[in-house]
Design a protein around this nucleic acid. Structure first.
Lengths: 220, 220
DNA sequence: CGTGATCTTGAAGCGCTTCAACACAAGTGG
DNA sequence: CCACTTGTGTTGAAGCGCTTCAAGATCACG
């Protein structure tokens, strides 16, 4: 339990309370969908292992899609549903993954009994706001190479925080997903990575990325 | 009270509870700052009258800034602070405005006593996540003219929801602010508005905008 | 081993930015 | 009150960064 997102900052009593409301876990295969736009929001999710992306479609029927978030092990998922009781995005597994399911009605009761849990939930939602704000800032102000560098550094930091190597990782998503997430085309992503490699900043072999020069990436 | 953001969906008893924790209001003049990046988060804000923008600076010292949000009367403000207890953006008044101040410690206590209030807070935070997601989608997928149209329609809908005219409004922010919010330059904003006017979609005289053809704007 | 998905790279084109000049409105001080 | 300054908005022209289209290479998976 202690690896996961929710219990951080909770006493062991509180964790026990939480443990009781987590009914079960679910495994989903690569490419499968955990929930879709419009699904009723009655469950909180937390990524246990693997990774997922959240995706939305543009309102007008142009068929364009945008990757809104990349969720690694330990991340919460589906918090946007509080607003109107329905999910506002699709969640798709990027690899075979497993997620914790927490029925919201149980969780809400536990929140009233345990103020630490209530605070934790507010913090998670607030963190989501900050994360989205960062993404908005990236899409609003940065050039393509700055966006790619920011994504690599963000992934590196998140993996490090989870105890994995921070300088080498295997991307679970395609160039298309990266581009969609960053608001650029997959060709631009590919060209940018090639340029980074030519400069000696990274070593990229398809989905396997090794960061060679952190300061160089940060300086872009 | 009932015009404001927080009480929606609350019983009159609950509203009374809430009323007690709102210590006071504060007026701020155009251009003044309500809070800054790094300020300790100990107060929730709600716009009572007027309007404010929230602004962040890019992490690297390039001096670039981005408008993150435009907050009209009734909107909540400063919710991003839950994450780490410090504000992640500046809040600047776009005109002479007044805001409600709600000390967070009082509010948190009221939340535990009143589950409707707790749910309302979660909903507000979640709405903020959805709003940021929409903004990310706009910056990630839309062309300049689509972005400007989306902003005009969004403002129109929000003003209508507040009981104002939906087809005519006086922008309180500059072309520069609009451009920053939409991730384009102020020149592109100006050119786009001129083009809309030439097409008969709007009538724009500086900050005074009149929407003539809603369907036309939506179809862009 | 073959087939479809994914990735890389090139070349042409376009949308937006940048730079610049000017018009206009708002606010300020003599 | 007007001249002045300052901030804001409009429009044009040149340039650049990214997209689009296209072709081939490489990878992944049944």
């Amino acid at each position: 339990m202690r690896h996961y997102c929710l219990p951080q900052g909770l006493s062991s009593d509180d964790v026990n309370t939480l443990q009781k409301v987590i009914v079960n876990a679910r495994t989903i295969k690569r490419g499968e969908t955990l929930f879709r736009v419009g699904d009723t929001f009655d469950t909180l999710y937390a990524v246990r292992s693997g990774s997922l992306k959240t995706v939305v479609s543009t309102p007008n029927g142009s068929g364009r899609e945008q990757v809104m978030g990349l969720h690694l092990g330990g991340d919460a998922l589906g918090l946007e549903g509080f607003d109107n009781g329905r999910h506002a995005c699709h969640a798709v597994a990027l690899e075979d993954s497993s997620v914790c399911l927490i029925p919201y009605v149980h969780f809400e009761r536990a929140c009233r009994e345990t103020s630490a849990l209530q605070r934790r939930l507010l913090q998670l939602l607030s963190r989501e706001v900050v994360r989205k704000s960062t993404q908005t800032l990236i899409l609003g102000t940065l050039r393509a190479d700055e966006r790619v560098a920011a994504l690599l550094l963000d992934l590196s930091a998140r993996l490090k925080h989870r105890g994995y190597a921070s300088n080498e990782f295997n991307l679970r998503f395609t160039r298309d997903d990266m581009g969609s997430f960053l608001g650029i085309t997959l060709e631009t992503v590919s060209r940018t990575l090639s340029r980074f490699q030519a400069k000696g900043l990274i070593d990229a072999n398809g989905k396997l990325i090794q960061i060679l020069d952190f300061d160089g990436l940060r300086a872009i």
